[in-house]
């Protein structure tokens, strides 16, 4: 069953075309890893899926809802789609627990106790239940990103988008975040991950998407695209990434 369907989507920033006629279908429960050089449009692609960016042409349907500016549709989509950001974007004035409870309380109208119980269960899942009463700045980058993942999970999304979740982390913290993501991948949630972590892609992805210049250049199962890349650009990209 297709949960995300993008048809000929184009997105411009002024004169610059970030997405050129992109089409992509993602099945429910599928794990898709998107990679590509910087400026290739991969972040824009996933930011269009929860409409942090509005596309100018084409059609995006998420879980049966066509993306428009209609507030009711936006609510529906943002309830279905969670997002994890490169810079974590935790709320610095709130404790970890408050960060996690804000959405469930205000949006899902959970009681205080329900929200806290849910938050705690997700903190345990990302393995930092003991940090619940700390403020984000008291945590390491890896811990902050895990809190951010837990914050998304508290909204119980069907789709989770990751925008370079490990790019802002020190090398020794990347593994702890990837481990959490790998565990998540086994739960059947639909994941679209923009990352350069090729090891993670090989382990977890059902499909790899390679983007360049606002286009999807190559798409396929990781074992196929890694062993036999069809395009020169992707071949060059993998070589660069794996050799550094």
């Amino acid at each position: 069953m297709t949960i995300i369907s993008m048809r000929n989507v184009s997105k411009f920033f002024g004169d610059f075309q970030a997405l050129k006629d992109v089409s992509l279908d993602v099945a429910a429960g599928e794990r898709v890893v998107v990679c590509g050089p910087s400026g290739s449009g991969k972040s824009t692609l996933i930011r269009c899926i929860n409409r942090l960016e509005a596309h100018e042409a084409g059609e995006i349907v998420v879980d049966g809802t066509t993306l428009t500016d209609a507030p009711a549709d936006l609510d529906k989509i943002r309830g279905t789609v969670g997002m994890v950001f490169q810079q974590f974007n935790l709320f610095p004035h709130l404790t970890v627990m408050e960060n996690l409870c804000l959405g469930p309380r205000r949006v899902l109208s959970l009681t205080d106790a329900e929200a806290r119980a849910r938050a705690m269960s997700h903190l345990e899942r990302v393995q930092i239940p003991d940090q619940a009463d700390k403020f984000p700045r008291q945590l390491s980058g890896g811990q902050q990103q895990r809190v951010a993942i837990a914050r998304s999970l508290c909204m119980e999304p069907r789709i989770l988008l990751f925008d370079e979740p490990t790019s802002a982390l020190d090398p020794e913290m990347i593994a702890e975040v990837l481990d959490v993501m790998t565990e998540l991948a086994s739960t059947g949630i639909t994941m679209i991950v923009v990352t350069h972590e090729m090891g993670f892609a090989r382990r977890v992805a059902d499909r790899m998407v390679f983007m360049d210049n606002g286009e999807i250049v190559e798409i396929g199962a990781p074992e196929d695209v890694f062993t036999a890349p069809k395009s020169k650009r992707f071949a060059a990209f993998i070589k660069q990434i794996l050799n550094h």
Binding site: D75, G79, G82, F85, G103, C154
Partner: peptide
Amino acid sequence: QYEAAQSISL
């Protein structure tokens, strides 16, 4: 901060 708030549907 706005984007994070939007992503949890606030």
